[in-house]
Design a protein around this nucleic acid. Sequence first.
DNA 1: ATAAAGTCCTGAAAGC
DNA 2: TGCTTTCAGGACTTTA
Length: 258
Amino acid sequence: MPELPDVEGFRRVLIACGRRCVTDIEVRDAGVLRGVTEKRLRKDGEGRRLGTAWRHGKWLFAPMDGGPTLVFHFGMTGSLWCCSPDEPLAAHDRLVLTLDDVRSLRYRDQRKLQGVQLLGDAAVGRILDGLGPDALAVDRAELAELLSGRRGAVKSALMDQSVIAGLGNLLCDEILWRARFAPRTPARDLSETACRGIHAAMGRVLRSSVRAGCVPPRRSWLTGRRDDSEPRCPRCRGALCSGRLAGRRTVWCPHCQP
DNA sequence: ATAAAGTCCTGAAAGC
DNA sequence: TGCTTTCAGGACTTTA
């Protein structure tokens, strides 16, 4: 699930929690802690007030007043919830922060592919150094610049977080379908006009998805068709192709995306 | 049993 | 040729 639009939704969950004080931290599965022990997390985190959460790509940062920053990554199955402490826990609630004893912030994740870190400013900086600009903030010229000179498939370039941060498998397929480019097109072969089209498609897909909090599985979108048993293109009604690119399932329309 | 929306690591290919 | 950058695929983990 979690690509940029989902993580943007999780940021709003954090904002909705308010700038409350962390009164308790319960580690229900230490497997999601990355580079921090339960002891350290509780020692450094409990008693601190949450600052304003921010996001870059698929990473979510929750700075704590006068202290380190809680850093969340959601892998493929992670999510963040803010509810009443009375709410029964879900099976995969791995980390539970109680806020001012009145709110319960829950990091839920089935597969523990990623996790939660507690980092100082320098370490946060190192994460950002490894990421390209946030996909929502990339302008047309910048996208063309980012794609130029990449000899691999355009989908691989868009998926590469060090090139542009926030796009995942579903978004990339959706964007390329909208812009009418085959996923395997070498990025450097794209003309100025082609990049312009991809940029426009990216903006539209991202804005709609952020509004929905996910890449919406609408029937008028590729995403809404890719799990059909015999998927057809919502635009031309032709049969969609499904294959593997860079290890990820890739769906495209051979007619619309030559 | 297979496949899944995440990233990291590896060996290989491409480029200078 | 040799070094560096870039690419594609597999590992990781858990469950439906």
